[in-house]
């Protein structure tokens, strides 16, 4: 008799614990339980965390105006500004040596940052066009094809019209890689019959 009562209580207890505590990995809005968290949560600052010490609520301090990052692109060179040193004229050509690696890197970065709006072919028909972002430049437009590399660099860095600045997201060297790849894409659309290599054509003939 006592054994049956004991078993019933035990089963009831298991059911109650399971229904209250749930299963592993189950949905929970409550932050994870941390027993003895004096080492787990140390009084130190993490990136992008909040702070109740500073008035703006941010733990990270914005740099003082005029601060130059040690590894930042601060020097007035075409590589950093897209402009010829000491002038406001745009550099005509990509200051990075054109290599297969640069173009491959550019393709990767173009796919990450440009493709959503400009499309994989840079024709301005990215996936976002279906969601209301309709005024996107077709990068095969003769006006854009004729832009200097430096001006395209400036547009990526500071944005233009509806396009926001990407200088904060894409490093200087990657911006030049993107431009190198963009020139490849543009070239791919500018071909004429005369560009075909001599010799037998791979295209089907009739």
């Amino acid at each position: 008799m006592t054994m049956r009562v004991f078993l019933a209580i035990l089963v009831l207890l298991v059911v109650v614990v399971l229904s209250v505590a749930g299963f592993r990995g189950g949905f929970s809005r409550r932050p994870p339980i941390e027993l003895f968290n004096d080492m787990t949560r140390q009084p130190k600052i993490h990136p992008q965390s909040a702070s109740d010490f500073f008035a703006d609520g941010l733990a990270a301090r914005p740099p003082v105006p005029g601060t130059v990052a040690r590894d930042g692109a601060w020097a007035d060179t075409p590589l950093n500004t897209g402009r010829i040193t000491g002038t406001t004229n745009f550099a005509a050509l990509n200051p990075r040596p054109l290599t297969a690696e640069l173009i491959a890197r550019g393709r990767e970065r173009f796919t990450i940052f440009c493709q959503p709006c400009h499309g994989p072919l840079a024709d301005g028909r990215g996936i976002t066009a279906q969601y209301g972002l309709v005024i996107v430049a077709n990068l095969h437009d003769p006006r854009i094809v004729r832009l200097t590399d430096g001006e395209i660099f400036d547009t990526i860095t500071h944005g233009k019209n509806n396009m926001a600045a990407y200088g904060a997201s894409i490093t200087v060297t990657d911006r030049w890689a993107i431009i190198a790849y963009l020139r490849v894409l543009q070239l791919s659309q500018l071909g004429t019959a005369d560009d075909r290599p001599a010799g037998p054509s791979a295209a089907p003939t009739k």
Partner: peptide, 12 residues
């Protein structure tokens, strides 16, 4: 275990 305490946390 973190399999219970951490996994599944889905804050608003």
């Amino acid at each position: 275990t973190p399999k219970y305490t951490r996994a599944g946390y889905q804050p608003l």
